[in-house]
Structure formats: structure tokens, C-alpha cells
């Protein structure tokens, strides 16, 4: 229930921020209607899902994002090197399977999205224990297999408060 309340507050803030209307009653009521519609859709799609939302994740996100930002920039530089100097830095595309240690579907989703967001690796499919990944180079695949990103996402998911 608490996440629904948070969603409504967040959506209302978002609506006011983007529209900038405070005093037009018609527009305000339309805004309230759209917020309630989205909240209803969210409630319908998550009420059958027994897994609780872990709002505590929010509070460790900035630390993870700053680490992810550095990873994104360095992998971008690597891919650009391979575009500009294909002879000196040849590519070696390959499929690999990367094990994951997250327990919630939210954690796995964050991990898979982070893999795809860093250029050079794309997450394709998730099964019970592994993620199928397409890597542009052997180094990118080995880097991922070393598991630093996996550990960080698991730590992000585990935090209790």
C-alpha cells in the first residue's frame, strides 16, 4: 500500500512540474484523473505479484549510479576506440552466460539493464541462474564475468534501511 501512496505523490509532483498549472480547476481535475488512472493501472498490474517493493533500494541508488556512470564512460571509450581503430583494437563478438546472485526480480532487472546500458555488452535472456549476454570483445565478457557489477547490484538489493 505504501508504494501506491508514493506513486500517487510522485506522479502528482511530476504533473505539476511539467504543466506548471496551479489555479485552473478544469486542468487540475484532469491532472488528478490521469494520476488516479495510472495508479489504478499500476495497482491492477502488481496486485497479482506477491513480491513486495523494496523502497529501501532508493536510498542506496545514488552510490550505485555514480559507480555505473564511471563504468558507462569507460566502456564507451573502449567501444569508440574499436570503431575508430579497428586494426589496432579488433572486435571479437561472442555470446557468454553470466551467473547472477540477485534474489528479487527487481535486482535481476537492475543488473540486466545495467549490463545493456554499458556499451559493449547486451543482456539477451534471463533464466534461473544465468543471463545470456552478447559481448563485443573478449575483454568486455571477462570483465563482466569477474562479477563486480553483480556484487554491487546484490549489495544494492540486500540493504535493509
Amino acid at each position: 500500500m505504501s508504494h501506491l501512496l508514493l506513486l500517487i505523490i510522485g506522479l502528482s509532483a511530476f504533473w505539476v512540474l511539467l504543466s506548471g498549472f496551479w489555479d485552473n480547476l478544469l486542468l487540475l481535475s484532469l491532472g488528478v484523473a490521469s494520476v488516479l488512472l495510472v495508479a489504478l493501472l499500476d495497482w491492477r498490474s502488481t496486485s497479482s505479484n506477491p513480491e513486495p517493493y523494496r523502497l529501501a533500494v532508493l536510498h542506496r541508488l545514488p552510490l550505485y549510479w555514480s559507480w555505473l556512470l564511471v563504468a558507462i564512460v569507460s566502456s564507451n571509450i573502449d567501444v569508440m576506440k574499436r570503431i575508430l581503430f579497428p586494426r589496432r583494437f579488433p572486435i571479437d563478438p561472442q555470446f557468454t552466460r553470466i551467473p547472477y546472485t540477485q534474489h528479487s526480480s527487481l535486482g535481476v532487472a537492475i543488473f540486466a539493464n545495467s549490463i545493456t546500458l554499458t556499451p559493449g555488452t547486451v543482456a539477451i535472456e534471463v533464466d534461473d541462474t544465468h543471463i545470456l549476454v552478447h559481448a563485443l570483445t573478449g575483454e568486455a565478457a571477462r570483465d563482466l564475468a569477474r562479477g563486480e557489477m553483480d556484487r554491487r547490484v546484490t549489495r544494492l538489493e540486500r540493504c535493509e534501511g
Binding site: 564507451n76 570503431i83 575508430l84 572486435i91 545493456t116 556499451p119 555488452t121 563485443l136
Partner: peptide, 28 residues
């Protein structure tokens, strides 16, 4: 970075590696 990524779209040999080049333009 955008222009380099777009060049990569033409330089890389197959669809799967072109995704990585498009990723450069999408992120950086």
C-alpha cells in the same frame, strides 16, 4: 561521440555488434 557511434553503425560487421555502436550514441 554521436558521430563516432554512427560511423560504427557502418563499420561493424553484423547486427549484434551494431547494437553496441548504437549504444554509444544512446548513452554517452
Amino acid at each position: 561521440a554521436g558521430i563516432i557511434g554512427a560511423v560504427g553503425l557502418f563499420r561493424f560487421p553484423d547486427f549484434y555488434s551494431r547494437v553496441h555502436a548504437a549504444g554509444v550514441t544512446d548513452t554517452l
